[in-house]
């Protein structure tokens, strides 16, 4: 009888201990995950800017940025695999150089987002160029650039030339 009571007690306390250690491990793991997430976030966020903001000197040269707007008409020049073009939000412009093949929907007068490193002369060394997925969807940064210049005609409306 006595033994049984003792066993029950021991079982209960060991249950409590195991539960406690389980929760401790779980919390430690969660802490690790959150820490990892915050650390990774601090290092890998890329801010978006419009050409006007770049011209205003908001971005320090050497920083990684995304710049969105329209591909300026007549600005695209290709030499081999290298392509150069100008992104405009109709107020200010940023020159972009990119090595590689641009997406299917990359066209003059259309919305585009380029990601890369800003050079001291405020031109962009792009390593990634995104264009619209189809004629309805535009990269949201491109939409934003047009909105900030008051040129946005609403979702689904044709992009102003």
């Amino acid at each position: 009888m006595n033994v049984a009571v003792d066993l029950g007690k021991r079982r209960r306390s060991s249950r409590r201990r195991r539960r406690f250690s389980l929760i401790a491990v779980a919390l430690a793991m969660l802490g690790l995950a959150v820490g990892l997430a915050l650390y990774a976030l601090s290092g890998s966020i890329v801010f978006f800017h419009t050409p006007s903001e770049v011209a205003d000197g908001v971005v320090a040269p050497g920083a990684r940025v995304r710049i969105g707007g329209l591909v300026k008409e007549g600005s695209v020049t290709r030499s081999g695999e290298r392509i150069e073009f100008v992104i405009t939000d109709t107020a200010k412009e940023v020159k972009v150089a990119y090595q590689g093949i641009v997406p299917d929907l990359f066209r003059e007068g259309q919305g585009v987002v380029a990601e890369g490193v800003l050079r001291p002369d405020h031109s962009l060394d792009a390593d990634n160029v995104l264009a619209k997925h189809d004629e309805r969807y535009m990269p949201r940064e491109a939409v934003e650039a047009l909105k900030r210049q008051g040129l946005w005609r609403g979702d689904g409306a044709p992009v102003p030339k």
Binding site: L36, A40, S44, F47, F48
Partner: peptide, 18 residues
């Protein structure tokens, strides 16, 4: 109203170690 993108570097640095 700051626009940022969280790209592959973030996910590679968090999901892979887990």
């Amino acid at each position: 109203s700051d626009k940022i993108s969280v790209g592959p570097p973030y996910f590679n640095a968090t999901v892979l170690p887990l």
